[in-house]
């Protein structure tokens, strides 16, 4: 294997994994918080929302990347929004056909995927500048990162709030759920707690890197809120 192919592979792997951890759309970039907080009161809902968003992100990135050279740059945002809205409508109907119960639980929040800034952000920042293959990898990475974030939220909230995981009871019948976890307030607390954890991990790592003398990148921290 030549050095070049190795490097290309490494780059592709990086495109894929970047969205999952280092630039996680929810925990690091704080994008698309609305669905992450609103529908993650159970694991099943969180998974459905994550997968629906991933689907829309993947399809939109693919299409945007395919037609990126045909779209005049003045109308590009409008075109991206059209493409995204189309796939959201598609996913809305597909979900209704696959599982009516889950669709009822998610309600209007499926339609609100349109305004998930993470999707438009990826279309604009990555898919409009890169080829189809790379855009697909990037979309899968970010979609995966988003789904994992949803599951982190949904898992904690369902386990603490109802004592179940994906509907399976964990603690026996005498467990009284913490109602607050399922209520809106709990969503804010859980996300806040996850951010605390990630901030702490990051600080510890940076301190360790400083200590050993290796250079560390000055990553975008969560202070960058204006997105």
């Amino acid at each position: 294997m030549t050095n070049e192919t190795k490097q290309a592979q490494h780059e592709n792997l990086d495109t894929l994994t970047r969205g999952i951890w280092r630039e996680n759309p929810v925990f690091v970039m704080l994008l698309g918080l609305c669905p992450v907080l609103a529908v993650t009161n159970s694991v099943v809902n969180a998974l459905a929302m994550g997968l629906a968003t991933t689907f829309v992100l993947f399809m939109a990135s693919t299409v945007v990347s395919l037609v990126r050279k045909l779209i005049p740059k003045q109308v590009r945002i409008a075109c991206y929004i059209l493409v995204i809205a189309t796939f959201v409508t598609v996913v809305d109907y597909l979900l209704q056909a696959i599982s009516f119960e889950v669709h009822r639980a998610l309600g209007a929040f499926i339609a609100l995927i349109v305004v998930n800034c993470a999707i438009l952000g990826r279309s604009e920042a990555f898919a409009s500048k890169n080829n189809v293959g790379k855009s697909m990898l990037d979309a899968l990475g970010f979609g995966g990162g988003f789904t994992i974030a949803c599951l982190c939220m949904g898992g904690v909230r369902e386990v603490l709030g109802a004592g179940t995981f994906a509907g399976i009871p964990l603690f026996g019948p005498s467990f009284a759920g913490w109602s607050i976890m399922i209520l809106p307030g709990g969503a804010f607390f859980v996300l806040g707690a996850w951010l605390l954890l990630f901030n702490w991990l990051r600080e510890r790592k940076e301190r360790a890197e400083k200590f050993t003398g290796t250079s560390f990148e000055n990553r975008e921290t969560s202070k960058d809120l204006g997105t």
Binding site: G185, L195, L196, N199, K223
Partner: peptide, 22 residues
């Protein structure tokens, strides 16, 4: 604490506000 600054504490405060509005 530097860990809590920024979004983390803002979200916690939002949680308290949300409970108030309940």
């Amino acid at each position: 604490s530097s860990v809590a600054q920024g979004a983390a504490v803002t979200l916690m405060v939002a949680g308290v506000l949300s409970m108030t509005f309940m």
